[in-house]
Each structure stands twice: as C-alpha cells, then as structure tokens.
Design a protein around this nucleic acid. Structure first.
Lengths: 342, 342
DNA sequence: AAGCTAGTTGACACCGGTGTCAACTAGCTT
DNA sequence: AAGCTAGTTGACACCGGTGTCAACTAGCTT
C-alpha cells in the first residue's frame, strides 16, 4: 500500500495541496473550518509528511552530524546518547562520523562529507573541535557547528566543561586528604583541554602555598595505554607518589591496572582519581573517584542549541560570536580509590 | 556559492540532463565522446549528485537504521563501528535508534520511525532481533532487515555467532583446567542467545561424562549489576565454585568486582571468564579470559549484506528464506583471570 | 454603495534528480 | 537505395513537498 501524499489529502479534503501544506506547517491565516477539514483528512488517510520531499523543497536535509575521534569509548557513548535524544525529540537525524584527528586529509574528508550528505550542521567533539583548519573551512562555507569543549578558540559557539575548575577541585580534594606527592598525568598535548586541566592542578598547589613536584608531572595522551605507561613511570620513581591524578578516567583506569599489577593496594598504598565519570569507573574494583562531567547532558544541550540555530536562518552564528559559550561545572564524586594519606 | 546541479552540467556539456544522469550512473549506451565530455564538465564544475533529489526520484532514502537496546556499552560500540564502516564505504547513511526491548509500544514506535525516516532497511541487534511482533510488522510492510543473532527464528536473514559452540568451548577449557565446581551465570531469559549458551555449557559437561552442579547455575541478565548479584549468590554457597563462567563479559566484569570486594585473589582463588571480548576485559586487572566474538566484523558483514539486498529489488528477502544465516565461530582468548585448579 | 484592508486560497514554478518513451543516428544487410 | 536493428539522445512527466504571487473574500470604514 502506497503511503498517502499531500495530493491525496488535498483531494480528500477538497482543497489545494498548498493549503494542506499550510495546515501541516501550522501556518497562520487558514480558516478554522478549512483547517479542521484538512486535519480530518490527514487523520483519515494516515498521512505523514515525506521528509525527502520537504528536505528537497526547503534545501535542508534535517540531519546533523557528530564528528568524533575520541579514544575513550565511554566518553563518546554518553555524548552520543545525549545528542541522539535531542535529535529524536526534534525530528532531526543524526549522522555519525568517526574521523582521525591526525589525518592530513581531515578537512577534505569533512568537506566531502558535508557535500555528500548535505548535513545542516555539525557537532564537533573533542579533539576535532580544536582543529582550526576545519573550523575555517566550515566558516568559509557558512556551515553551522557547535564545539564541545572550552571556548578558548574565538570561533563559533561552544559548550563545554570548566576543565580547569574540575582539575583544581580534584587537586584540592587530594591536598585535603594530606597528599603532597601527587602524580599528575596530563592530557594530549594537542588539545586545549589538556592545558586547562594542568593549569587547574598547578593553581590548586599555588593557592595552597605549596610547590608542585615537577618530576611527578608526566605526559599522557588520554588513552588507557598512556595511563598505564605514565603510571609505570611514576611508580618507579625513587620517591613514589602517594596519589595519582589522571586528566581523564580512561587513563585513571590504566593507572589502577598498573598499580594492581605491581601489587599495590588501592587506596591504601596509592590513591587514584580521574575526570569525566565514564561508566567503567564504577565497574572496576575499587570504584574510581572522579569529577563528573555530565556528558549526556552536554550532548543533549549541544544538539538542542545547534538545532535551534538552524531554525532561525537570520541569526547566523558568526553574528552571535564566540561569546556564546556555555560552561558547565563538574562535580566531585568520591568513591573508593582515594583515601587520607598516613 | 551554490553547488552545481545536473542542469548546470548539462548546459556546460551541451547535452540534456538525462544524458548527464546516464553518465553519473554509469549506464551503458552512452557514446564514448559524449561520456568524456560530460565527465569533463562534471570535473570542471565540481558537481556532486544531490542525494535528496536522487532519493526522492528513486523512492529510496539511502539510509539504514540500527535498532539496539543492549545493556553492554562495549558490545554496541564495536557493532556500530563495523556497521558504520560498511555504510560509509557504500555511501549509505546510518540512523541510530536506541529503543526499549520491553516497552509495550515498541512495534508502533518502530513503525513510526520507518514511516518518518523512510529508511531502506534495518539491522536488528540483540535482543531486538528476537522480538517476533516486530519482525511480523516488518515482514508485513515488506521492509528488509538483517538480524544479528542466532537463526532459530524462521524469519529473515541473520548473521550471528555460534553462541552454543562458544559456551561449549569455554566450558571445556575450564574442565581441562581441572575445574569441576563451575558457576554458570546465564543470559537474559527472554533472549535466544541465553538458551544457546546454557546449552553449550551443559553439553560440555555431558560430553565429558560429568554432572552439572545445578545449584551453581544462576540466573543473570547480561548486565554488570546482574553479574555482581549472581557472583554474590555463588560465592556465598557453602561449597564455593572454583571458577565462574558468565554468559557475557559485562557480567564477568561484575563477577571480578565482587570477587575482589570479597578479597578473593583472581585467578588463584577463583577463575573468571566471559564471552564477547569487549574492550573492558583488557582494562580491568587481571585481564579477563573470554571467547572473542568479532563484533566489528559482524557489524560490517551485516550492513554489507543488507545493502546488497537493497540493491537488487527483485530478490525479496522472504524468497531467500531463513536459511540464509551466517554463523561465525568465536575464538578462545586466554588471559589472566583463569588458571589451573589446585 | 464604493473603497480599503487584512485574511484566505490556489495556480504555478521550483527543489534536483530518475524513468518512460519516442525520435533520431549509424552501420549493417538485402 | 531501401529496410532493418541496435545504439544514442532528449522531451516530458514525475517523486513529494514549499515559496511566490495574484485573485478572491469578508468585514470594516468612509
């Protein structure tokens, strides 16, 4: 059985298809009786607007894309879930695109994606959101996007976490537990967020009138394996840290693994904490103390914001400027991987 | 700058748009010189076919949807990745839809989804793939789908793992390690796969001439929490099992947590193993022994198969019948969570 | 009653492609 | 040269909607 079209409805209601279109789109200036007649026909024929016809006529695809390249599966999953929820509510489709941040062809790749799928807008997850060349291309093509991340780059709108504050708060928490030899594993050097969290770490020491032990600040790359490697480095120091703070949970899980491999008791011998609150932190033993970054909520808000922007054609994003950055604070979640020193 | 359309190309090449269409679609019966002329114009104008126009004309959306409701994030992530890869290669879009298996409105919900998005076909992940009412609706509407799971239901095409064999092999492995008191945590009672794995477990005992200790077979639901609960039950028995085999990794991780909470050493005091090989199994300490089910590959194959079927309109799926089931064997991956008894 | 205005409606073109069918062409056979 | 056939091409309608604009209507003011 062929699905009913707008013409079928028009015939059934005895009006023109344009009038049916008006009713579907809930436009003003349709006489009440006409509207009711059309609505009755729509119900009678079980008519549903064909999104392809509409998309072609409106020159909009009603799809947005999520661009990601994140090494932490838990991170992406939650973000995606939130985005999906908003898209579903607003009858937009979501296109997933997993790309490689480091690929030299990234910009061309995305350009092709945009041309081939005609997506209306993009959500850029970290670290894609920090790729200046990409942002330039999108601006030049006047394609709207929302960055998930810090607002430092003076481009587009963004929504993100207050990574510096999260890191500051967590460091403070460790200091209050009397830890002084705190190992810190940084994020990927390419990413803005890494700088912010290191800043927060150092600020907390400074505000407490303490010195950071530089030999305990180790480079990480946000991946599980880099967490293991960094932990290995830290735990082999002559003076071992009493706590290790990793710039994300994925690495913190790696630290936990390495500690357990070395027969250290967590938290008695070593406190461990991370940032994000991805699901694995409550699956490993012991559960990991972290700063909760509500990714699902961020995803939801980012998608809602983007879809909003797409609705009013007049307000182009450049006009709104980079000031439109939403910053969300993390929340300390104390679990079983941290305890008082001594 | 407006993107070039087929009419622009036609004008530039001095032919009709139909001829351009023929060249784009690589149809036979276009004179060589004409073809080259058109191709030159396409290159000159950087023309890309508008997928919406094509979709409308062909009455196909070039989108497929993945229907999922899986409690194990790692499981879904890999599956999705494989599907996405195939879709990208074949220029199809992927629509994600996370639904609730137990929701009474599921069938209506999917019906709406199909009507609103006009997806060309569906991939049904477990446990959605076992929902008979849904399959009936899809068959009635003549919508193609591929089920990811066992072929037991005599409907549609499917691609899945040999869950019984995986379970059989794992049980055998434990028996060879001299374990006799093996705790088994079953899958969700609603799902076909759960029956198959329990069958494999029992078969291995039977073939070895041994009796299953019925008090050590405990109900699970494929979730992390159900793994914890089942482990708790098992570890509080007067005679504790020396090994616990969970029907999926997600539960096995729960078992590991519970064992560690109770200060048991794994694998010295208790061997633990699961099925699937999701990423978390190599992030917890110790790494968990499992049967690898190559989800990425399954996802890729399922999508490729579906897209293939969509291409030839003639071969409707009912005609192919349920015999077209691809079964893939798992592979034993021995890690650090299992060891010889005594 | 004529004139005005805001509200209501439909004809028509259009978005960017594909399918059908008829007309034309080239090259062969008779 | 006429007739035939297979290959090549384009005119036109169509997929299912929306935008523009003009025509019509109802109700008001003068």
């Amino acid at each position: 059985m062929r699905a009913a079209t707008i013409i079928d409805v028009a015939k059934h209601a005895g009006v023109s298809k344009k009038t049916v279109s008006r009713v579907i789109n809930n436009e003003a200036n349709v006489r009440k009786e006409t509207k009711e007649k059309v609505q009755a026909s729509i119900a009678a024929l079980d008519f549903k607007r064909n999104p392809l016809g509409m998309a072609l006529a409106k020159n909009r695809s009603f799809f947005i894309a999520l661009l990601s390249d994140n090494p932490s599966p838990g991170y992406l999953m939650n973000l995606q879930k939130g985005i999906l929820q908003s898209c579903t509510e607003q009858h937009m489709g979501l296109f997933l695109y997993d790309c490689s941040y480091r690929s030299t062809g990234l910009v061309t790749e995305i350009e092709d994606l945009v041309e081939n799928t005609l997506v209306d807008g993009l959500i850029l997850a970290p670290p894609i959101c920090d790729k200046i060349e990409l942002l330039e291309m999108l601006d030049a093509r006047n394609i709207k996007y929302i960055r998930i991340g810090p607002k430092d780059l003076e481009r587009g709108e963004s929504i993100g976490f207050n990574g510096m504050k999260s890191s500051y708060d967590m460091t403070n928490y460790l200091l209050k537990l009397n830890h002084r030899d705190i190992g810190f594993i940084t994020g990927h050097p390419d990413q803005e967020s890494a700088r912010r969290s290191e800043k927060g770490f150092r600020q907390a020491f400074e505000d407490a009138g303490l010195e950071v032990n530089e030999s305990l600040v180790v480079q990480g790359y946000y991946t599980y394996q880099s967490g293991i490697n960094a932990a290995n480095t830290l735990l082999n120091k002559e003076k071992r840290p009493t706590a290790i703070f990793a710039a994300n949970d994925e690495m913190a899980v790696g630290v936990l693994y390495e500690a357990q491999s070395q027969n250290l008791r967590v938290p008695d011998d070593l406190s461990i904490c991370g940032i994000d609150d991805i699901s694995i932190t409550t699956k490993v033993w012991p559960n990991i103390t972290t700063m909760r970054h509500p990714l699902l909520s961020i995803g939801y808000q980012a998608a809602s914001l983007l879809i909003d922007r797409l609705k009013d054609k007049k307000s182009m994003m450049p006009a709104m400027g980079p000031d439109h950055a939403t910053i969300i604070d993390g929340e300390l979640v104390i679990r079983d991987s941290t305890s008082k020193h001594k």
